[in-house]
Amino acid sequence: MITAGVDAGLRNIKILILDGGKIAAKGIAPSGGAGRAKAIEKLWEETLSSSGLRKGDVSKVVATGEGKNDVLFADKLVTEPIADARAAKFLLPTAKSVVDAGAAKTRVVTIGKDSNIEEVVLNQKCMGGLGLLLEVIADRLGWDLDEMARAKAGETVVNDGCPVFAELDALEALNKGASREDVAGAVTEAVAVRLHSILYDKVGVSKDATVFIGGLAKNGAAVNALQKRIGANFTIPDDPEYGTALGAAVIAAD
């Protein structure tokens, strides 16, 4: 059975196609802003084409994400934590919690013994945009996002309560001569502090059975800072930004 999951996020659209429990294809593209529905349709066709599939081959499509209503070909819509939890169980059958940190939002989902959702924590306003913050800082440093891995902890400290203030602090540090590695280290540490607060907003997360998905999970420096801070060892899939789309595709296969 071939199914697909579409995660229409704020920054990017992610599509993942599952064939008999194995990933057959995946595609990612910018969200398209006001033209999101068209951008989704275009990516859908490209992803199908890349795998040699036709629309009729896909039995069911489940959409999620902020722009899920723009997935006009979806058979079913689900909210993100539902998909996150299913992705976590698919990736790690013993998963007890999943963290999904994207460009705009962060969610923590705790999963019960019978795979039901026990609790969902959604970021508050000042926690928003952590993924975007890393993108913006990389841009300020003249780096690609992947280069943020060069971050090193140094003397520089930036505000860890607000991404806007964090960016201003980072600019000030650069103007005063701080190294790019040092500034990147300060920003990733600030992101880790904010993530720590949401992870423990209510019930906490499992130290050894937590799956970390979302685009922010690609930033090794931030994830390592967080793991070190709470003494955890997260399970991170190869392409974590597809995590929610994977969960949607798994739901479609039910």
């Binding site: 993100e80 934590p81 539902i82 969902v120 306003k125």
Partner: peptide, 18 residues
């Protein structure tokens, strides 16, 4: 008040309770 976010949260809250 972010009305859209509020409604999104309501959907997430209810769906996560089945």
């Amino acid at each position: 008040l972010d009305e859209h976010d509020f409604l999104d949260r309501l959907d997430i809250w209810m769906e996560s309770q089945g």
